[in-house]
Nucleic acid binder design. Structure first.
Lengths: 153, 153
DNA sequence: TCATTTGGTTGCATATTGAAACCAAATAAG
DNA sequence: CTTATTTGGTTTCAATATGCAACCAAATGA
């Protein structure tokens, strides 16, 4: 599990809220986007994001502290690189769902945007979609939130 | 498309960044989580989130302005309800991916958390997973980001 | 009718952000 | 080897955002 200490959760029993506490911040999400795209150096993130250095520094520190990135120091302690941990790579689905929602809802028709393609085929990934265990497509109305200690209805 | 005016995008050509600008904020994400769970009233969100009223008010306003929620006024203009738009309901996949990542990475083994279940079966949804169009599982290393104006390699 | 709840707004103190200046170590150029 | 430049930050400071508490009018309930 990602660093259990230090974080005081907004809503400790809700996995959505824990994720939001850990990575639910604009710059954090964009750093993860870039990490998944292979970027590793402070300057690469800075150039790609256009974020203030102190903020980038802070977010990288938090991401390392929370177990999403590993800091790999270069010889003399400086000029380190930042590499995704397992939990970090596991954020691929989240970033992809941000991307796909944005493509569907945040661009005017015809407006250009960057695309993610599969190296082999050159085609974009299939649309992520929620399914029930029986294989049927799942809509929000067909689901129910069961809180801790609550019986399954 | 969601409100084109007003937002000045962090990275206009990147769908991930546009999504992050629109919904990449902790309280915003939790409001959407609650909306998908059927909550509609100011007081319901307030009670569920424990957020300051002015912040809740601000985020609801932004979500309406951005086309994620619709405000349905009650008779005399007050005590309105907030309903998800199509783009809002379309965030189900995103919230589910936050939930599933959190379940996998933000809880110690054995630690309890709320769960989302399918009404019919009482079982949680299948894990969301990225696939290429050819049906193969897709890892981040197998993908490539193609920026606007860049030729497909 | 009177009390309470709801759905906010306002004011204020504190925390976070972001721009800019600064700096030492690493690297590149000559 | 020596000097110039780049890198990877830290520090400072002003502007902005947050969150608590008080307040309020309209709606609802007793």
């Amino acid at each position: 599990m990602l660093q259990p200490s230090k974080v005081d959760w907004t809503d400790p029993e809700c996995p959505v809220a824990r994720s939001a506490d850990l990575v639910g911040d604009k710059w954090t999400l964009l750093i993860i986007r870039d990490s998944l795209d292979g970027k590793r150096r402070f300057s690469e993130f800075e150039k790609s994001l256009g974020v203030a250095k102190n903020i980038l520094s802070d977010r990288l520190r938090l991401l390392v502290e929370r177990g999403v990135l590993t800091r790999i120091p270069n010889d003399r302690g400086t000029r380190s690189e930042y590499e995704l941990t397992g939990a970090g790579r596991d954020l691929f689905t989240l970033i992809l769902s941000l991307r796909q929602w944005g493509e569907r809802n945040a661009f005017a028709t015809g407006e250009k945007h960057s695309i993610l393609v599969t190296k082999g085929t050159g085609q974009p990934p299939a649309q992520l979609q929620p399914f029930a265990t029986d294989g049927k497509e799942l809509d929000p109305e067909d689901t129910l939130l069961v809180k801790v200690g609550q019986p399954l209805p």
